[in-house]
């Protein structure tokens, strides 16, 4: 029982971390970033590089954030910016970017599955249940991501301007806010978050050039049902992630892998606002 609850919470934490970058990009830019999977992969391979260079495993996280931000900056400038008025084309172009990232990584690192070192190893006892310390750490990491985004949005000038752009872009521009700049910074942060999430999830499994793709669809569905709100995203990650854990445990892991997609699609059909207010 304790293990099941911990599985649900840690799964929700992972899903939240993975989806948060997508959420802020969709919220501010109104663009569906299909390169999200690619950014996750970049984060995973940042961890691999840190491992191969024999550096401290904790360095994987800042390395991933920096790599994601740099990549995000380039992508926003040359690909996203011309496509603000063409949201469907933005999906395709970012998808193409995902392919480019995947192929570049394949060429540089090879196609095979590789493993990265974990900064925290071992297990601990929680209410008499032995549980992986790293998975428990992920709860903290997700909370830190959530706290960081909330602080950025609510306690900084940039966050205030980003919220203004989300709510009413023309009015924001009329007050002198450079919405293009707000978008650029948001995209960079979203890419950095995605990359960080990639680095966070790799110690659980392994890295391969297409590791981001399976996460993309689940992250998407979660963002869609949360109506671009961080709090709703947390609720969605807990409920749908919880359902996934339950189905995987009691029915079948394969069907469990589909739980989020199917439930989210049905939820949106019945209640288009999802977990958001509406």
């Amino acid at each position: 029982m304790t293990a099941l609850v911990l599985d649900i919470v840690t799964t929700a934490a992972i899903l939240f971390a993975v989806a948060s970058g997508l959420l802020i990009i969709l919220g501010v830019l109104k663009i569906v970033n299909f390169a999200h999977g690619g950014f996750l992969t970049i984060g995973g391979y940042s961890g691999l590089v840190v491992t191969q260079l024999g550096l401290n495993a904790w360095l994987a996280y800042p390395a991933a954030v920096v790599a994601g931000i740099v990549m995000g900056a380039v992508v926003e400038r040359f690909v996203i910016r011309p496509l603000y008025d063409r949201p469907l084309d933005a999906i395709l172009a970012t998808w193409g970017l995902g392919i480019i990232i995947g192929q570049l990584i394949t060429i540089v690192f090879g196609r095979e599955i590789q493993f990265v070192q974990t900064p925290i190893t071992g297990a601990t006892s929680v209410f008499g249940e032995t549980y992986s310390l790293y998975r428990l750490f992920l709860i903290l990491a997700a909370a830190a991501v959530a706290g960081g985004i909330a602080a950025l949005l609510n306690a900084t000038r940039l966050g205030l301007e980003a919220r203004a752009v989300i709510m009413n872009e023309p009015l924001a521009r009329g007050l002198g806010i450079n919405s293009g700049h707000v978008r650029f910074v948001t995209f960079c942060i979203g890419a950095g978050l995605a990359s960080l999430a990639g680095a966070l999830i790799t110690p659980l499994s392994s890295v391969d050039p297409n590791m981001g793709v399976p996460w993309l669809v689940n992250a998407f569905m979660l963002v869609l049902v949360s109506s671009v709100s961080l709090a709703s995203l947390a609720i969605a990650a807990l409920t749908l992630g919880g359902a996934q854990v339950l189905v995987s445990t009691f029915i079948s892991p394969v069907i469990g892998g589909l739980t989020i997609v199917v439930l989210a699609a049905l939820l949106l059909r019945i209640r288009p606002a999802g977990f958001g207010h509406g």
Binding site: P82, D89, G96, I99, I100, Q103, R111
Partner: peptide, 20 residues
């Protein structure tokens, strides 16, 4: 093998952005 896919991907992004 990989370079070909990379080329296709790059042309694809280029076409979407510049020649929709």
């Amino acid at each position: 093998p990989y370079v070909w896919k990379l080329i296709i991907g790059s042309i694809f992004v280029l076409v979407i952005v510049a020649l929709p």
